[in-house]
Simulated assay, not measured.
Amino acid sequence: MTFEELKPKVQDILLHKDTLREDKLLQLCHLLKDNIDYYDWVGFYFRNGEKEELLLGPYAGEPTDHTVIPFGKGICGQVAVSNENFVVPDVKAQDNYIACSFTVKSEIVIPLFVDGKNIGQIDIDSNVLDPFSDLDERFLEFVNAEVAKLF
């Protein structure tokens, strides 16, 4: 399924008034993981109040031990500090990488802003080397802009 075909499905999930926010985000994670071949783990991390750490939110994929990530640690922690997209074509080339699984070869993390403040991020792991393009970044920015409306 193309990103353009997925956009209305993303919006449909997020518009359901009788569904809890956590459930919407979980459905969204499954939608992306199930419809984009190289998205092997899709999840959200959110800032833990005023603490400089991220807490794991809804996700689709293998369970992870990384439920709390300090700011600056790993790709997600770096995005929490930089407020910028981070695309990692090959995780083995990153010094500050937290390995979730030996099968993960690449990662993309896009910050989630609400009222100009970084409240979290969407994190995607792939078992494929260098699959992410500018199209992934633009699509995930769209996803996060839609998710931000829930807050």
Rank of each mutant, 00 (worst) to 15 (best):
K51I: 07
T2P: 05
N83I: 08
I110W: 06
S82P: 09
L6I: 05
K73Y: 08
K33P: 03
P131K: 03
G116I: 05
I36Q: 02
L112Q: 06
D134K: 13
G61P: 02
Q94I: 15
H66Y: 13
F142E: 01
D136M: 02
F139G: 02
F113D: 07
G61V: 02
P63R: 04
H16W: 10
F142M: 08
D34R: 12
Q78M: 14
T67G: 02
I69Q: 02
F132V: 03
D12F: 11
D134P: 04
V87E: 13
F71K: 07
C76L: 08
F132C: 01
V79Y: 10
D125V: 04
S133N: 08
G61M: 01
D23C: 00
L14V: 06
E4N: 13
I69T: 06
L28Q: 07
T2Y: 01
L20V: 01
V128P: 05
D40T: 10
D18W: 09
Q78F: 14
G49N: 10
N48T: 10
G77D: 11
K105Y: 09
I36S: 05
I13E: 03
H66E: 14
D40K: 10
I13W: 06
D12Y: 11
E53D: 12
C100I: 09
S133D: 14
Q121R: 04
A93P: 07
I108H: 03
K73S: 13
N127S: 13
I122E: 05
N144Q: 09
Q11E: 15
G120A: 07
F46A: 04
I122P: 04
P63S: 05
N118D: 12
L14Y: 08
P63Q: 01
V10M: 02
K33F: 00
N144L: 11
N35V: 08
D65L: 13
D130P: 07
F86Q: 15
Y39E: 00
G77W: 12
D115I: 10
P70R: 12
L56Y: 04
L129C: 00
P131D: 03
E5L: 10
Q121C: 15
V81A: 00
F3G: 06
D125A: 04
E107N: 07
A148Y: 06
L135F: 06
W41T: 04
R47D: 01
S101F: 11
G49L: 09
T67Y: 08
